[in-house]
Computed example of a mutant assay.
Amino acid sequence: MKAMTSKTPKDTLTIMTELVLPNDTNGFGNLMGGRLMYWMDIAAAIAAGKHCNAPTVTASVDNISFENPIKLGNIVHIEAKVTRAFTSSMEVYLKVWGEDSTQQYRYKSNEAYFTFVALDPNRKPRPVPQIIPETDEETALYDGALRRRQLRLILGGKMKPDQADELKALFFK
Rank of each mutant, 00 (worst) to 15 (best):
I154D: 13
G144D: 15
F172N: 14
E138S: 07
E79T: 11
T87K: 07
T14M: 07
G144M: 11
G98L: 09
M40N: 02
T115Q: 09
A3Y: 03
N23C: 08
M4S: 13
E18V: 06
N63E: 12
L19W: 10
T102L: 14
L119M: 06
E99I: 01
G98R: 02
K10C: 10
V117M: 03
N63T: 13
V76I: 13
K95D: 04
A54E: 12
Q130A: 14
I42C: 07
N74R: 00
R148H: 07
R123N: 11
E137R: 14
G33R: 12
K71P: 03
E166C: 12
G33E: 10
G29C: 08
R147V: 14
E99H: 06
K173L: 10
K50N: 12
E18L: 14
A44G: 13
M16E: 09
L36Y: 04
V61K: 01
I15M: 14
L141F: 03
G156C: 07
R152F: 13
V20W: 03
I64R: 05
I64M: 12
H51P: 02
G157S: 13
Q104Y: 11
R84S: 08
Q150A: 05
N110D: 10
E67M: 10
S109L: 06
M37H: 04
P55G: 00
P125T: 02
A47C: 06
L72C: 01
P127M: 10
Q163D: 15
F116E: 03
L31V: 03
A43H: 01
M1T: 08
P121Y: 05
F66I: 05
T14Q: 12
D162G: 06
N53H: 12
F171T: 14
K173Y: 05
V76C: 01
P129Q: 06
Q130L: 11
D162A: 04
T58G: 11
D136C: 06
D143P: 05
K10L: 13
A59Y: 06
C52G: 02
N53P: 02
D165Q: 10
W39E: 08
P121W: 03
